[in-house]
Design a protein around this nucleic acid. Structure first.
Lengths: 223, 223
DNA sequence: TTACAATGAACCAATAGTATACCAATTAAG
DNA sequence: CTTAATTGGTATACTATTGGTTCATTGTAA
């Protein structure tokens, strides 16, 4: 029978790969070098590595080379997801988290923190430009999370803010954002702030929920 | 093989930056000087520093030069917080997020996803060792988040799981975790699963809320 | 002979790096 | 204030290397 050199080479490459021989640099020699190393034609070597490619143990790029498939760390995996989250998913999470955060803030906020929230509300309502309003709008929500006195909750909110900043679909919102909408938001913020001042966690939760429903309709229309 | 000089230079610059070589003046040499130092074209050097710019470790100004950014990037700041979150804060966030996630799962889960949740429940109840039970317990909750079909929500849950894994205070829980508690958890899981099977989002939310209250009492005692 | 593995060669397309020029913002000297 | 030099930002042309592909040819076992 024919010598079947390819399967021998494939076995050898599997061993060398498992031994971590290429793990440090993360890349293998070129096909031509490997072929020369095994004293074999490039076609034969390509047959030998096709199985490894199909199994996902290695992957190749034209003009670059052959690389070992390194499993990304859990954190890397998570952040890979965060890069392209849909606006619908983001809003759904906000609708889960923010009303409860408002309730917590009503219970836990210091007087200074509530005044900081009030300041953000006032600056937002008084600001003329849309860009400035959006900045104070973000500040308003952020200060509510800070007032929960829950570091983890605050961190999650900053994470959500980061997603909003680095995703382009936020521009869609800006187009559909007029003067009337701005006044509505301002009134909603006022009701939330009022509930916080009264330390009324139930009302704060409700008003924040209504505010986010308002936001949802501005983005996606009513259901 | 293509030399990939840029990657090497990027690694070198990362080291020199971390070592504080440019910390005193706060600025790096010009692109042309750095390129000459590494004996490389300016294009290549620019590729090498693009990653550092994207991560916010350095920033550039036309006509001025390249400067080191003393402030950690937003993501680094967030993760610095995540490293030492109190168990109380973590549980509070779980109590906010997980009941709503259960409700979403009841509405959005596929039949296969519900069966996957049921499997995790069954394996957990049948497992003899505590360690094995905890593994399936985590899997139970994770699969509920997967069933929400909200990628961001799923990512947040994996983030919370990471925090639990890398913080040492989880050991406190294990000490206070007996056979009776395990049976209680198993019954709670069964009620949650039943609600999911009925597509009853209100019941799923309620049962998950009760389950987390149960967890809170196991950790901190009753209020 | 026949079937199949392997060879050797050629060419394509993608990528990395080099070299060069020009632009716009900034800075410093006159 | 004006002007020249410096610096990062950008674009283009060119070279070399690498994986992707095809094809004619050779060698060997059935």
């Amino acid at each position: 029978m024919p010598k079947r050199v390819a399967v021998e080479i494939e076995r050898s490459l599997r061993e060398r790969l498992a031994s971590g021989e290429w793990a440090s640099t993360g890349r293998l020699p070129t096909e031509r070098r490997l072929a020369a190393h095994y004293g074999v034609a490039r076609n034969t070597l390509r047959k030998a590595i096709e199985g490894l490619v199909r199994e996902g143990k290695i992957f190749r790029h034209v003009g670059r080379g052959i690389f070992v498939n390194r499993e990304p760390s859990p954190i890397e995996q998570i952040f890979h997801v965060l890069r392209d989250v849909s606006p619908a998913d983001l809003l759904a999470v906000r609708q889960i988290v923010e009303p409860q955060a408002a309730a917590l803030a009503a219970s836990h906020a210091s007087r200074a923190q509530i005044e900081a929230i009030a300041e953000a509300h006032r600056m937002g309502c008084e600001s003329g430009e849309i860009a400035l309003f959006e900045q104070w709008d973000a500040e308003f929500h952020q200060r509510i999370f800070a007032a929960t006195r829950n570091e983890l909750l605050f961190a999650i909110h900053r994470l959500l803010s980061l997603i909003r900043q680095q995703n382009a679909w936020i521009d869609l919102k800006r187009e559909s954002f007029g003067e009337e909408q701005r006044r509505n938001y301002c009134r909603s913020h006022a009701r939330i702030l009022e509930a916080l001042r009264r330390r009324d966690d139930v009302a704060a939760e409700r008003e924040m929920r209504l505010h986010l429903e308002e936001t949802r309709q501005a983005l996606f229309g009513r259901h």
